[in-house]
Design a protein around this nucleic acid. Structure first.
Lengths: 216, 216
DNA sequence: TCGCCTCTGGGCTGTCAAGCCCAATTTGAG
DNA sequence: CTCAAATTGGGCTTGACAGCCCAGAGGCGA
């Protein structure tokens, strides 16, 4: 993320202006998450954020600028969560299991999908110029997993034979694909299965055989 | 798929009519695959299929009916491929590797994504009533993998401990997620990694240890 | 041959959304 | 206090698209 959230619009913003902009952004993210990009229009946005039409245009002159900001905002949220202490930066199998459990028990997973992935899928074929922002966000997301796996290798918890990038791609793909499948099936099982088995696979590279963990 | 492709419109269709309808459907599928649903309009469709506007309305009265037909058409294609002799109904690890190789060397994977998955992501949040058709298609897709894994178990190639449904969900999720990641990154690596490691995991349940296959 | 199906090539309407403009008022920081 | 920023609440234009209708011209099968 090239810090779109904090990217300065060409105006000076007072704290109040920043607050309004943030409120619009937050509501836009929520609306877009639940209804999709092209089903979200200015009028809904105005009502949700409690601002007049002019303000929308003031802070986000075009829809593309708004969508870009939303992508940055969602990416920041997801990356902040993944980098939080909650998952100890993915330095243990428990952390991965906790991560999977978190999303499996997240009801909106099979209602709305991934906050970033759904957005990406919906607009990647349109002419909105959002590709770089998306690519950068997913790169960083992948890095969180890869760094965790590399740390586990340095800590001697994971075999040096494991390919951190490959495993990171598996985890991320299982997550994104599982989210989509669960959304379509309206059932959390596909996501649960995909995450569990993906982590099982990482665990086949465990150095200490004490915790098999397979099938959690 | 509840045979949308062959579902009779309320008119009687001569062979010529069927041919025209099929031509429209094919072009619609192609256009929608490359440009997305809501970026494909009647005019492009008319030109691509070489028909007049009235014909569009004749065979597909609403856009929803067209999209439904396209979903059915794409589902049929994907299921037919997966059930073809090419992959011997997934009764061996080689078959899974061949399947992965097929999509990894499919250039459009990281350009347009999955023919079904992209479509699903784009429209699942809209008010188009296409959910059942999608859910059914993905169910059948999952079944192809699950049946293959169960067959491998009966053939003694795979441990009875393996959970066929879980593994099928992993494979399908890795595929869908990998497609999305590769599309965003404009690089086939994420899909390749996800499929390879997912199949690696299936192979950890192999009964004969001769072919390790890990990392292919 | 008759009649339904196929097909053309428009045109028309309603709807909806994005972007833009304005005049006037309130607020807040320096 | 003063000025710029923030805000209101409209209205307006433009464009796009879906759905629909029509009059007329083939074409193929029963």
């Amino acid at each position: 993320m090239t810090t779109t959230t904090t990217a300065p619009p060409p105006h000076k913003l007072t704290s109040k202006g920043q607050a309004t902009r943030a409120r619009i952004l937050e509501q836009a993210a929520e609306l877009i998450y639940t209804k999709g990009v092209h089903a979200t229009n200015n009028e809904q946005l105005r009502r949700a954020a409690g601002v007049s039409g002019s303000q929308l245009n003031h802070y986000f002159p075009t829809k593309e600028s708004l969508v870009l900001a939303v992508i940055g905002w969602q990416a920041e949220r997801v990356l902040t969560l993944h980098r939080s202490e909650r998952f100890t930066r993915f330095d243990s199998f428990d952390a991965f299991r906790a991560w999977a459990d978190f999303y499996v028990s997240y009801e909106r997973a099979y209602q709305e999908g991934c906050t970033l992935g759904s957005l990406a899928s919906e607009i990647i074929k349109t002419d909105l110029d959002v590709h770089d922002e998306l690519a950068s966000s997913f790169d960083q997301w992948r890095s969180v997993f890869r760094d965790g796996i590399e740390r586990m290798q340095r800590l001697g918890r994971l075999s040096a034979e494991a390919d951190p990038t490959q495993l990171a791609n598996l985890l991320l793909a299982a997550f994104q694909g599982g989210m989509l499948l669960s959304q379509v099936a309206r059932d959390i099982t596909p996501l649960k299965d995909a995450l569990q088995t993906a982590i099982d696979h990482v665990q086949t590279f465990a150095t200490s055989p004490d915790t098999d963990g397979r099938g959690a």
